[in-house]
Amino acid sequence: MFLTKLSHLFYASKTVIGWVHGSLSVLGAFALAYLCGTSLSALLKGDMAERIFPSMFLFPLLVCCFGFWLLFSKNLLHVTLKIALLALCNACIITFA
């Protein structure tokens, strides 16, 4: 019963955006923007200022882009998958760059 409800919550497409979807999109957007900025700082070449500041300048735009990307997901599963995959990808860049 519980599993059925959970699977419904994750898979069901909704006509109106819910609070969980919205909150997850906002938190996910901030988390992914931080992770992408951290990856960018790891990849950039130059002195410290040249490696850190571009991430800082881009951060607000990254949050918005990720916010829209997560928002336009069919269901919660898509939101979660997008966050998890991109977080994993960034974690690899940060670790091995």
């Binding site: 931080y34 900025g37 951290t38 990856s39 960018l40 700082s41 790891a42 950039l44 410290m48 490696r51 850190i52 991430s55 800082m56 300048f57 951060f59 607000p60 735009l61 940060i94």
Partner: peptide
């Protein structure tokens, strides 16, 4: 954009500094 940079980024950019 500038407000977000001044308000949030100047005090919460530790991950970027740590990574760089």
């Amino acid at each position: 954009c500038t407000g977000a940079f001044l308000g949030l980024m100047l005090s919460f950019s530790h991950p970027f500094a740590w990574s760089a």
